[in-house]
């Protein structure tokens, strides 16, 4: 049997500043699947995404994470990226003075170098930028500016998706990418995600609401609560959550 497992999290405990937030996460994701992770505020959704991309503020105290059979927790943030993991940040950072073009060229070339490929030529790069920009309907004025500087909330999220389609990750993690987006922007984000959909590409959608899941159809839905996954189901679980809220699950979890 071919091993189709992309990500395997076992008994993951992690926290920040000595406070434990993830209290034993178990999660398996196969290639080509879309998983949604839902849950009320403060349940650990963003901590999980930060740990997966190696944010230095978060410390893993127990458990393992295998990514394509490798020990993910040993890799530096840049190597995780070059191995195909991408996080669409909930709060993208503004970086004045670093142009989008330079930033993306550096990123693309670092990925190529990792895979023993020559740096992309200037003309090919600009062509690539143009193509990918079209997918997320992003104005060339935005890519001509410094990274996220002066971007509106929606533009920042769109820029995250633009970077995602540029880097074509194997595992994309969308951390509340839908928050604060109007319906058009939401459609564009979904369009970006769906454009990457192949039997090899996997997406982890972290969200509060069912809204984004109307556009990005998940195969599996998990509910994260107090640092643990308390329920896993199909797409219908998201709809149920939208109708009934989280309280019934809290009761089920014994509270």
């Amino acid at each position: 049997m071919v091993n189709n497992m992309l990500l395997e999290i076992k008994n993951l405990h992690a926290g920040i500043n000595g406070r434990e937030i993830l209290k034993g996460i178990n999660l398996s994701v196969n290639k080509g699947e879309i998983h949604a992770i839902m849950g009320p505020n403060g349940s650990g959704k963003s901590t999980l995404s930060s740990v997966l991309v190696g944010h230095p503020a978060f410390k893993v105290t127990e458990g393992t994470v295998l990514y394509q059979g490798k020990n993910l927790l040993e890799l530096s943030p840049e190597d995780r990226s070059r191995e195909g993991i991408f996080l669409s940040f909930q709060y993208p950072v503004e970086i004045p003075g670093v142009s989008m073009v330079n930033f993306m060229r550096a990123a693309v070339n670092e990925h190529r170098k990792y895979n023993n490929l020559e740096p992309v030529s200037a003309t090919d790069f600009l062509k690539l930028m143009r193509e990918k920009r079209a997918i997320v309907d992003m104005d060339s004025k935005l890519t001509g500016r410094s990274v996220n500087e002066g971007f509106s909330g929606g533009e920042k999220k769109r820029n995250e998706i633009f970077q995602m389609v540029m880097l074509e990750p194997k595992l994309a993690i969308l951390d509340e990418t839908d928050s604060g987006l109007d319906i058009d922007a939401l459609r564009i984000v979904a369009n970006g995600v769906n454009s990457l959909r192949t039997p090899q590409n996997t997406t982890l959608v972290i969200t509060h609401y069912q809204r984004l899941l109307d556009y990005i159809k998940p195969d599996v839905v998990h509910v994260l609560y107090k640092g643990r996954i308390i329920k896993t189901g199909g797409p219908e679980l998201a709809i149920e959550l939208e109708k009934k809220g989280y309280d019934w699950l809290k009761t089920e979890a014994g509270e």
Binding site: V53, G54, H55, P56, S76, P77, E78, R80, S81, R82, F86, L87, F89, P92, V93, I95, V98, F103, A106, A107, E110, H111, Y114, V147, Q163, L167
Partner: peptide, 8 residues
């Protein structure tokens, strides 16, 4: 970290 997380 933002730059690193893009592979730089």
């Amino acid at each position: 970290f933002y730059l690193q997380s893009r592979g730089i």
